[in-house]
Design a protein around this nucleic acid. Structure first.
Lengths: 109, 109
DNA sequence: GTGCTTTACGGTATTCGTAACAATC
DNA sequence: GATTGTTACGAATACCGTAAAGCAC
């Protein structure tokens, strides 16, 4: 299960329909429909109930959407953190160059 | 950034080498090497320093590995939770059949 | 030489879009 | 009839393995 699919599920739940979510995700309806089917097939679980116009999440779908939102947020935060760490290394290096005379200048770049 | 790539990074860090991680992941060394390069290219950040035999994570790499392990664990737990929710629905139904006559048997699992 | 990494190349699988069909309001 | 969901088909992309070459010990 990849983050991409989790994002799809969250978008569908928030939009209340596949077509609405597809617009938000810049995808086409058939593509998103197929991805959702594939996801349900992988899990062996029905995540949404098709009812007339849109869809509503099943109980399992609700659990997945809630947990998925957390996971996605953490993944995003993690990547941002990594970017900061990478920039932080540069910053530390600059400081080192400007420093006086400390013996150890290694930064483990 | 997909969970698969995060798992690759964690495995490489834990094994201390691409070949070791590849064995654990049931992949070939070239494949894993390429995936790591692709990951570093996507982020625009060097995650591991190649030094002779194996590799060691940079500071940014350490941050990513630590955070990635958390994300992966949560994603796995989330999926397990979804499975439980799906089974729980069935279970709840069974209890309902066997139960006496309470109006609300919901458990919000 | 042994062990590790990288690059190049080809095959397979996945993902996506377009087109056509079915169903609901 | 307009909107939504699904199925079928083809194209583009991504992933993986094998083969070959470059480095470090």
């Amino acid at each position: 299960m990849e983050l991409r699919l989790l994002g799809y599920a969250v978008a569908i739940a928030e939009a209340g329909s596949i077509s609405g979510a597809a617009r938000r995700l810049h995808l086409t309806q058939p593509t998103l429909s197929r991805q959702l089917s594939e996801m349900e097939r992988q899990l062996g679980i029905k995540l949404f109930v098709r009812e007339g116009r849109g869809l509503t999440p099943t109980q399992a779908g609700q659990v997945l959407v809630r947990r998925a939102a957390t996971v996605l947020a953490e993944a995003e935060a993690a990547l941002k953190d990594v970017q900061l760490a990478a920039q932080g290394m540069t910053g530390r290096l600059t400081v080192t160059f400007a420093g006086s005379g400390s013996t150890d200048r290694s930064v483990a770049r």
